[in-house]
Each structure stands twice: as structure tokens, then as C-alpha cells.
Design a protein around this nucleic acid. Sequence first.
DNA 1: CTGGAACGGAATACTTTGTTCCGTTTCAAC
DNA 2: GTTGAAACGGAACAAAGTATTCCGTTCCAG
Lengths: 214, 214
Amino acid sequence: MSSPTEAAGLSGRRRQAALNDEAILNSAREVFLADPKSPISDVAKHAGVGISALYRRYPGKEALLRQLCHDGLRRYLAEAEAALADPDGWTAFTGFLTRVVDADVHSLTVHLAGTFTPTPEMGADAERAGRLAEDLVERARATGKLRGDIVLQDIALVLESCAAIRVPDRRRTTELRRRVLAMLIDSISRTGAPDLPGPPPEAGEFNWRWQRRP
Amino acid sequence: MSSPTEAAGLSGRRRQAALNDEAILNSAREVFLADPKSPISDVAKHAGVGISALYRRYPGKEALLRQLCHDGLRRYLAEAEAALADPDGWTAFTGFLTRVVDADVHSLTVHLAGTFTPTPEMGADAERAGRLAEDLVERARATGKLRGDIVLQDIALVLESCAAIRVPDRRRTTELRRRVLAMLIDSISRTGAPDLPGPPPEAGEFNWRWQRRP
DNA sequence: CTGGAACGGAATACTTTGTTCCGTTTCAAC
DNA sequence: GTTGAAACGGAACAAAGTATTCCGTTCCAG
């Protein structure tokens, strides 16, 4: 794992290499978020490096995708843990959603899933992520501000909805996503509203994405 | 243009051909909705016909995509016009959204756009669609049930959000989409709610999808 | 000076896929 | 019954795209 701005304190070519580490990962994130099926050469082009620089660091495309996805999953975990430290169960919940949407974590995880064979560790992390999210929902419910018929899996619906919003400009994308998120949170917190239609989403109903897509 | 169940009254091979007309279009819709980049052979396989049956009807892949997209656009127009016949501006608005979401018209139009060069007629239809949607929003606003800071382009946000929800089973997909739509409509109708964040979506902000994607 | 780490990018090998082509089946008209 | 054309299935073909390898070059640390 390379920490950000690891290039500090290095000189010459070592420094350049460390910079490339970041540039490649950042470019991969940007390119693969735009289209998970992008050719690996686009990543190199976007990072301003040759293909070799990529293959020196990752054994192949899969490994890069896997890393990217796992990083997203870790980000999700970090945000969830940070949110759980918030004494207010409601702001913990809404703040978590906002930060996850802003970071586009959903695209990094769910939309990249299926493009590689996941490691057992990722499975464990995903499970833990589910537990943390459950805690967040429970604590939000305890505040009494959460609509009665909202279940854990509704988080997936919310994140999926927000991640779908996309315009060419990244900053504007974030703004528009926040607009949608505001609407959804607004509705989610309507304790007196009429029941939502249909059976609520069930556990595992969105796991199909993690199946290997050929 | 072929009307549904055109096969009635025909016999023998003519009948089979008319049936294939439908099978091919239906399969194309299903396959390309699942993934707009699907190979054309998947469509044939799904329809249970050979490739020739496809090429007898359409000069190429583009033409099939174009037809599918244009059909979706026409469906949008039809639903909008039907909704405008409703004397109640609010149920006209919500009913329109529901039917468009149920029919997955958004995927049919926006998500297929960019995979072909559009005809001038499609441009004209798209423009008219925009005007009709504007009317629907205006009439909804006139009822006083529409949140003040909702603009026409918010419809795009709503449809995009709903279209993003997808699980393997189509019927279940519809249910879950209705759940999200219920949340969004719920919030959209909160006349007393705090303002939504950020500048509202602008006209033409989603037109980028119609640019040819290579 | 110099050996090797790091790299750029052409070349390769392979897969995918749109389209064509041809032999075959089927049916309606004579 | 004969037949000719509509309709079709699917192999064959051609073009494109792309993951990966390979080799010559650059640059620095020791």
C-alpha cells in the first residue's frame, strides 16, 4: 500500500516512480469510473506514462481493477467507522451517505465488481461493511427521525440512484448527486409519510453484481 | 412500422416471419437494455433465430439500435400526451413518471443514445418531448402540490435515478424502481421542505449522452 | 563509470464481433 | 406436382480492438 504523497523526501527517479504510482491509480480510478470496460492503454495515456509503467506495478488488468475496487471498499469501511464515532445517530447516517456519494464509492465497488475474481479478504470486508451499515441504520432509527418502513437495503437503492447521476464535469456531477440525495434523505426522514410501495429490498438482492461477468 | 400481433390472419411462413418481426424487436430490447454493447448475435440467439433473419430486416446494427431508441422516444411522447389528457395536473404528472419508469423508456432512449447517428426526425421528436414534459411540470406546479424549487430538468434526475435500479428479475426491478420513485415523488411534493442544495439542473445539461460515443 | 531499475512504445497474439455468403427449407401460385 | 422466390440458419470472412510481451533507451545510485 502506498500512502498519498509518498514521493516526499525522495529524489530523482525514485521520486518520479512514486509519483507515477499515484498518477496511475488516480487515472485508473477516473478512467474506469467513466467506463469499467475501458482499455488499459487509456489509463496509461491518461496518466501520461507508457504501458510498461503499468505492468511493472500490476501483473495485469484484473489486478488493477481488483485493487481499485478493494480501495473503494476500504474507503467505505473508513467512512462508516468515522460516522459511527458521531454521537448523533442521525447526522452520522446522513453524513455517511453524503461522503460515500461524494467519493463515488458505489461506482468503485459495485460497478467494478464482476470484472475480476474477488479475493477472500474482499468478501470478509464486504461482510463487515454490511454490519457497519446495519449499525448506522439502527442508530438512525433510534433517533426516531427515520421513516418506519426503511430497511438496511434501502441504502443500496439510495447509493445506486445517486451513482447513476453523471455529467461530463465531475464537480457538477457531485452537485447534482447531492440534489438527488437531498430528495431521498428528505423522503427517508418523513416519519409520517404513507408506506412505500412493494416489498422492501431484501438482503442479498444486490449481490448478483459480484458474480463474475464474462 | 409493425403493429403488435400482426401475425394474426396470416398463415404458414408469412405468419412465422411476422412472429419473428416481433421476437427480434423484443429480444433486441431485452438484450440491449441489459447491455447496449451486446453483440448482435446475442439478439439473434435470444430470439431463437439466425443472423440472417436479423439482416433481412435491418441493414445493420445501427439501424436496429436506432429503431429501438426511436420506439422508446415515441413511447415517451405517447405517455406524455396521454398524461396531458388527465384533468388533474398532479396525477397526470405522477402517473406519467410511473408509466415511463415502468416501461424503462429512459434506458431505451438515453442509454442507447450515442450508439448510432440519430435522424433529424428523432431530434424533432426529442424537442417535442421536452415541450410536453414542460407542460406536465407546469400543470403540476399549478396544482400547488409541487415543491417550489423543482425545475423541468429534475425529471431527468428522477428518471435517471430510477433507471439505475436493476436486479436480474425484471418484475422485481419494476417494484424496486417504484419504491425509489415513491421516495422521490414524496420529496418532490413537499411544498414546505427546505431548499434543495446547489444550483438546479439546467436545460441541455444531459444532452451530452446524445453525442456519438465511439 | 556502470549495472540495473524504470520506462516508452512498437509488435504480437488473440479475442470479439459486424457483415456477407451460400446452401437449404418452405410455401403460394400455377 | 412443379417451381421459384421469400425466408432462413449458420459457417466463413474481415476488420477492429486490446491485453500482454519485448526490446531498446534513459537515468540515477553507488
